[in-house]
């Protein structure tokens, strides 16, 4: 002990840089600060640019003397070429498919997350999590044809003539399967982040695993689960390929999942794929749809955020 202490004393102070209290310029620090700032600015700038471009083109659409906001929001048919401007015909399909998707993905995703974080042995988790993540890596066009060629025939045997070949139910169900891994994985992260001490406190009160999971851990993780749902909803609303392939190829104001209908994204993809001439009403209308899509996502995000803030239980 004593020898070691002596050794430390023999290190020469002169081996260090001379202490100088004067302010110095540190080039590395300034450089990295500028770089990080630029990275932040870039992402904000991109968002602003997109909104600007959308807004500019959409203004051309709304600038048309025949188009009014009243028509836009109250008509139930969408065919700008012949004076039908009812965005509801597209919004209805987006809401219906997204709603079905969340109806599938939220309970199943949350259940898988609770299983993975609270019940699964480390071994089971080691197998299941990667599988879940593979599911998230499947291209959406594959999901689209899975819906059309596998799920729809099954639904046909159940609903027979009442269901159409292209229908929102099949697209919504498969979209739910698509966002399930996302919600499961993000929720699992949120659940795992809840301190062990809270679980131990619950178990020490004579709580079962289920009571602890559902009544202590899930409420404590609600902000993270809410974030997962927000991302999931946004993915569902913005999803294009599945609905384009399986939901239908024509605007149809309907909330009946058995009907064929076209979502906002599906419509944009189909119309812009054809020979569309510049500055026609059909062309500018696409930007109006995109702006509406932006708005729907925003509103859904705000609603989710509100629900989370209302019900979450804050630890710390």
């Amino acid at each position: 002990m004593k020898e070691e202490a002596l050794k430390i004393k023999t290190v020469d102070v002169k081996s260090f840089r001379q202490v100088d209290l004067k302010k110095k310029t540190r080039v590395g620090e300034s450089l990295i600060q500028i770089l990080l700032f630029m990275a932040g600015v870039l992402s904000i700038f991109t968002t602003i640019a997109i909104v600007y471009e959308l807004g500019k083109e959409a203004m051309l659409f709304f600038g048309d003397p025949d188009v009014t906001l009243v028509k836009f929001f109250t008509m139930t048919r969408w065919q700008p070429g012949i004076g039908q401007y009812g965005i509801a015909a597209l919004v209805s399909a987006t809401l219906t498919t997204s709603f079905i998707a969340i109806l599938i993905a939220l309970p199943l995703g949350l259940a898988s997350a609770v299983y993975l974080s609270e019940y699964a042995s480390p071994k089971a988790r080691g197998v299941l999590k990667p599988v879940l993540e593979i599911l998230a890596g499947i291209p959406t066009v594959v999901y689209g044809y899975f819906a059309l060629l596998f799920v729809t025939p099954i639904l046909k045997t159940i609903f027979e003539d009442r269901i159409q070949v292209y229908n929102m139910l099949s697209a919504g169900l498969v979209m739910g399967i698509m966002i399930l891994p996302l919600i499961a994985s993000m929720s699992e992260d949120a659940l795992s982040a809840v301190p062990r001490a809270l679980r131990e406190g619950a178990y020490a009160m004579g709580a079962t695993r289920l009571e602890t999971s559902l009544q202590i851990v899930v409420p404590a993780a609600l902000s993270g689960i809410g974030a997962a749902v927000i991302v999931g909803v946004s993915r569902a609303v913005g999803e294009t390929m599945i609905v384009a392939v399986a939901a239908g190829a024509g605007p149809n104001f309907s909330f009946n999942p058995l009907d064929a209908a076209e979502t906002m994204t599906g419509h944009i993809a189909r119309i812009s794929g054809g020979d569309l001439s510049y500055n026609t009403i059909d062309y500018t209308s696409l930007f109006a749809i995109a702006l509406m899509l932006f708005l729907v996502t925003l509103v859904l995000n705000l609603i989710s955020q509100w629900i989370v803030n209302r019900f979450r239980e804050k630890y710390e």
């Binding site: 301190p195 809270l198 131990e200 619950a202 020490a204 009160m205 004579g206 202590i216 239980e313």
Partner: peptide, 20 residues
């Protein structure tokens, strides 16, 4: 074990109230 814990309570090192 659930019944055991109901009859033998425990207080931990760091206070761990529920977030309620």
């Amino acid at each position: 074990p659930v019944e055991v814990r109901r009859r033998i309570g425990m207080v931990f090192q760091k206070p761990n109230p529920f977030p309620k």
